[in-house]
């Protein structure tokens, strides 16, 4: 029972991070039918920038409370990632708005490689440890344990997702985003500046990615210039699982993927008689991706089939 509950907690925490990143993929796909494969790298940049700020602050002012230091890291990483998202859209995607859809896909991969290399040049190839600034408290629930960091990740992720739903459903920008997603041409006839709405979508998605990047590095205790690749692929799988283009789908897909990974890693040893271990954790995301694409390409909540991904 305690192992089950433990995996459930771990899966939910991990899944809420996947959900935040998956939202970025799904929002951009919903509006442009474009997979922004540089999105994982934006997450990585969020982690790296915040770690740089946190590291510098921890050196300069060692007495500062950890939460404050973390807040400063986020306060820098979020705008940096937003600017990065804006820049990528402007430079790599907007000029190709009317090009065949393979073209922006290729520039997306190009942008990820560039971002990885920039990060490598700035921060090097080694793993960067997340300084031990956060409260290390753990709480026991029914034989399982949950850390302060995990609680913070869960609460923050839920708050962010609720805010996002409110923005998309209730605000003028949200209505413009949904209208643009349904018909760019008609939205422009309503007076919607479609380019601005698309740019806003990238900016919002990038802000979520920044937060998710900080969460991941705080959770695993490290960051690395290549971390965005796997994280991005997993979040993309989560978005496809939920039904790409669908916000609720990205949230559901993220949580499910987190749970599948967590339970998979927890029980794979028992199931294979010790033949495969928990280091096979990363395999599950791709099993899920393949299974969804084969059996239900529109995803769990997606109404439309992904025509031209």
């Amino acid at each position: 029972m305690d192992i089950f509950l433990q995996q459930l907690i771990n899966g939910l925490v991990l899944g809420s991070v996947y959900a935040l990143v998956a939202l970025g993929y799904t929002m951009v796909y919903g509006i442009l039918e474009l997979i922004n494969f540089a999105h994982g790298e934006i997450t990585m940049m969020g982690a790296m920038v915040s770690l740089a700020v946190i590291g510098a602050l921890a050196l300069a002012a060692p007495g500062l409370p950890g939460v404050l230091v973390l807040g400063a890291g986020l306060a820098v990483a979020i705008p940096v990632c937003m600017a990065l998202g804006l820049l990528i859209e402007r430079v790599a995607y907007r000029p190709l708005r009317h090009a065949p859809r393979l073209a922006p896909l290729i520039t997306a991969i190009g942008v990820s490689i560039i971002l990885q290399n920039i990060a490598m040049l700035i921060w090097g190839k080694q793993y960067i440890p997340f300084p031990a600034i956060l409260p290390q408290g753990r709480h026991e629930i029914l034989g399982a344990s949950i850390s302060d960091t995990q609680i913070a990740i869960l609460v923050l992720a839920v708050l962010i997702m609720m805010t996002l739903i409110l923005v998309v459903q209730k605000t003028r920008l949200g209505r413009a985003m949904r209208a643009t997603a349904q018909s760019r041409q008609v939205a422009s006839l309503m007076g919607v500046d479609v380019n601005r709405v698309i740019a806003s979508t990238f900016v919002i998605g990038s802000a979520l990615a920044a937060v998710a990047g900080v969460m991941v590095s705080a959770y695993y205790g490290l960051a690395h210039y290549y971390m965005g690749f796997l994280l991005g692929l997993k979040a993309f799988s989560a978005a496809v699982l939920g039904g790409i283009g669908n916000l609720g789908g990205a949230m559901l897909g993220g949580l499910l993927l987190g749970l599948i990974e967590s339970f998979g890693a927890g029980y794979i040893g028992d199931l294979t008689g010790g033949f495969l271990g928990s280091h096979y954790q990363d395999v599950f995301a791709f099993f899920v991706l393949i299974a969804v694409l084969v059996f239900r390409p529109s995803g769990l909540l997606g109404a439309r089939v992904v025509e031209r991904a």
Partner: peptide, 26 residues
Amino acid sequence: LTLVPEGRGVFPRMSVVENLMMGAYT
């Protein structure tokens, strides 16, 4: 100056009132 496009161009996944409010977007 407002164009009602060929094929009407309503936003299919928005409610009637949301469509109307899109008309007042500006």
